Lab assay of single mutants.
Amino acid sequence: NITNLCPFDEVFNATRFASVYAWNRKRISNCVADYSVLYNLAPFFTFKCYGVSPTKLNDLCFTNVYADSFVIRGDEVRQIAPGQTGNIADYNYKLPDDFTGCVIAWNSNKLDSKVSGNYNYLYRLFRKSNLKPFERDISTEIYQAGNKPCNGVAGFNCYFPLRSYSFRPTYGVGHQPYRVVVLSFELLHAPATVCGPKKST
């Protein structure tokens, strides 16, 4: 009989979030998941669920729940959905087409922007091929755009693959930082360890 609440607040209220290319994953298990708490945590810009209804979450049980978190800019949030393409979905964080879970995003301009520009958040701009779903690539190998090998040196047709967002508070919403948490629900042929409040007794 599990009584402890799932530590969603640790994920959502973390002081620092990860850069999207090096997104963070927390496995959540053996706890009571009260998803209604999430609705009250922040004024969400996005709370979209796929393959599951957000209002039914509190009635369900899962084997595992994974919470992935990272920062992107406002106009990239739409890429965090099944079947999307674009720089983020292709080279940084890719959801599977049959994704079961929820994408939660909110504006973090007050936390993640600086007047002089916050350069701490990076994204991958160049990659030889698209990522597979939930693949994480943290390599910093020089990207070869031409025929000549780069031998690890940046220059003509040889690019450092990561680029930094420079978040400034005066930017338009599309270029402001957004914190994203992706909850993916895993149903294996194994005992369910993460249940809503109704199912945990």
Rank of each mutant, 00 (worst) to 15 (best):
N4I: 08
N4G: 11
L5P: 14
C6A: 03
P7I: 07
D9H: 12
D9P: 07
V11T: 05
V11D: 04
V11E: 04
F12Y: 03
N13L: 11
A14I: 05
T15K: 13
R16V: 13
S19L: 02
A22S: 11
N24C: 06
K26S: 08
K26I: 10
I28T: 01
I28P: 01
A33W: 15
Y35V: 11
S36T: 12
S36W: 04
L38R: 02
P43C: 06
F45E: 15
K48H: 06
G51P: 00
G51H: 07
S53H: 13
P54I: 15
T55S: 15
L60V: 11
L60Y: 13
F62H: 08
F62V: 12
T63E: 12
F70R: 01
F70H: 02
V71K: 01
I72G: 01
I72M: 04
G74Q: 08
D75P: 03
D75V: 05
D75E: 11
V77P: 01
Q79P: 01
I80R: 02
A81V: 04
Q84I: 07
G86Q: 03
G86L: 06
N87Q: 11
I88T: 03
A89Q: 02
D90E: 08
Y91M: 07
N92E: 04
N92V: 02
L95S: 00
P96T: 01
D98W: 04
F99W: 12
T100F: 15
T100S: 08
C102K: 00
V103I: 07
A105W: 13
W106K: 00
S108R: 01
S108A: 10
D112Y: 00
S113Q: 07
K114D: 15
K114Y: 10
K114N: 15
S116Q: 14
S116G: 15
G117F: 04
Y119V: 14
Y119D: 15
Y119L: 11
N120G: 12
L122Y: 15
Y123Q: 06
R124S: 04
L125C: 14
L125T: 14
F126I: 13
N130H: 13
E135F: 02
R136Y: 02
D137M: 01
I138W: 04
T140D: 09
E141F: 06
Q144G: 07
Q144D: 07
N147R: 12
K148N: 12
N151R: 12
N151C: 08
N151A: 12
N151G: 13
G152D: 09
V153W: 07
V153R: 14
F156G: 15
F156S: 15
N157F: 08
R163Y: 08
R163I: 08
S164M: 08
Y165K: 05
V173T: 13
G174I: 08
R179G: 03
V180H: 00
V180G: 01
V182T: 00
S184A: 09
F185C: 05
E186I: 00
L187T: 14
L188N: 15
L188H: 12
A190P: 10
A190W: 08
P191A: 11
C195P: 08
G196S: 11
P197Q: 15
P197Y: 15
K198H: 14
S200A: 14
S200F: 12
T201I: 13
